[in-house]
Computed example of a mutant assay.
Amino acid sequence: AATGSAALESAARTHPDAVILDLGLPDLDGLDIIHGLRGWSAVPIIVLSGDGDPRRKIRALDAGADDYVVKPFSMDELLARLRAALRRPSTATATATAEEAPARAVIGDHVVDLAACTVRPLAGTPEGPAGARPVRLTPTEWAILGLLLRHPGRLVTGRRILHEVWGPDSEDKGNYLRVYFSTLRHKLERDPARPRHLVTEPGLGYRYQP
């Protein structure tokens, strides 16, 4: 795929066994592609980059990449890393199937497209007239929403969300979740005070109710 948008569309359509991603894309930042894929898929992602800055590498791995290869590299090394990524139990078919979410979901009066990272008004609703502007979510909001949508109807603990989105050192920062879920409900729910889809289970965690 020549662009990030084309890559996301192709991945949603064909469900590849693995993704080799160059971060230098003409239309989107490579990290946005990782967030877009991780919103609905557990496919292995290997990043190729000429940027060997450890901070850039950490951001890519935290976003959900499985490996990070710095240019220049040998083809033998790349193929070995690809074979290793495909062998990992976390990317086995059963796990990937269980973790994958539909490419699109409806929340309130909005259609959430996880592959394209877009939220648009649902046609035929009061908030969905022709020409209505899409809702914009931050990368962190996408990460939270994608995790919930991968488990429709199931409880996802607050500790798990904090661990997967902010890292293992953030599992005691429940205030993060209260702020972000409030923002997500105001952006997506018809009645944020009485959410229908992004539900809090007091003392336990959160649930996406289709």
Results as ranks from 00 to 15, higher is better:
residue 1 A to M: 11
residue 1 A to H: 07
residue 2 A to C: 08
residue 6 A to N: 06
residue 7 A to I: 04
residue 10 S to N: 07
residue 18 A to S: 09
residue 19 V to P: 01
residue 23 L to S: 09
residue 25 L to G: 01
residue 31 L to T: 05
residue 32 D to Y: 00
residue 36 G to E: 01
residue 39 G to Q: 05
residue 39 G to A: 07
residue 43 V to I: 01
residue 43 V to W: 00
residue 44 P to R: 01
residue 44 P to N: 00
residue 50 G to S: 03
residue 61 L to C: 00
residue 67 D to I: 02
residue 67 D to S: 07
residue 69 V to T: 08
residue 70 V to G: 05
residue 74 S to A: 08
residue 78 L to W: 02
residue 80 A to H: 06
residue 81 R to C: 04
residue 83 R to K: 06
residue 86 L to P: 01
residue 87 R to G: 06
residue 89 P to A: 11
residue 94 A to N: 10
residue 94 A to M: 11
residue 95 T to K: 13
residue 95 T to V: 14
residue 96 A to M: 09
residue 97 T to M: 10
residue 98 A to E: 13
residue 99 E to G: 04
residue 101 A to K: 14
residue 101 A to V: 13
residue 102 P to L: 11
residue 103 A to V: 14
residue 104 R to Q: 15
residue 107 I to S: 11
residue 109 D to N: 13
residue 110 H to E: 11
residue 115 A to E: 12
residue 120 R to I: 15
residue 120 R to L: 15
residue 126 P to I: 10
residue 128 G to C: 12
residue 129 P to N: 08
residue 129 P to F: 10
residue 129 P to T: 09
residue 130 A to P: 10
residue 136 R to T: 13
residue 139 P to W: 04
residue 140 T to P: 02
residue 142 W to A: 04
residue 142 W to K: 02
residue 143 A to F: 03
residue 145 L to K: 08
residue 145 L to R: 08
residue 147 L to A: 09
residue 150 R to A: 11
residue 151 H to S: 14
residue 152 P to D: 03
residue 153 G to I: 03
residue 154 R to P: 02
residue 155 L to P: 02
residue 157 T to Y: 06
residue 158 G to P: 09
residue 158 G to T: 13
residue 159 R to C: 04
residue 159 R to M: 04
residue 160 R to W: 07
residue 160 R to N: 08
residue 162 L to R: 15
residue 162 L to W: 07
residue 165 V to Y: 11
residue 166 W to C: 09
residue 170 S to E: 15
residue 170 S to K: 15
residue 170 S to F: 14
residue 172 D to S: 15
residue 174 G to I: 11
residue 181 F to A: 10
residue 182 S to L: 14
residue 184 L to Q: 05
residue 189 E to Q: 07
residue 190 R to L: 12
residue 191 D to L: 04
residue 194 R to D: 13
residue 198 L to F: 08
residue 202 P to K: 15
residue 203 G to A: 14
residue 204 L to Q: 10
residue 208 Y to M: 14
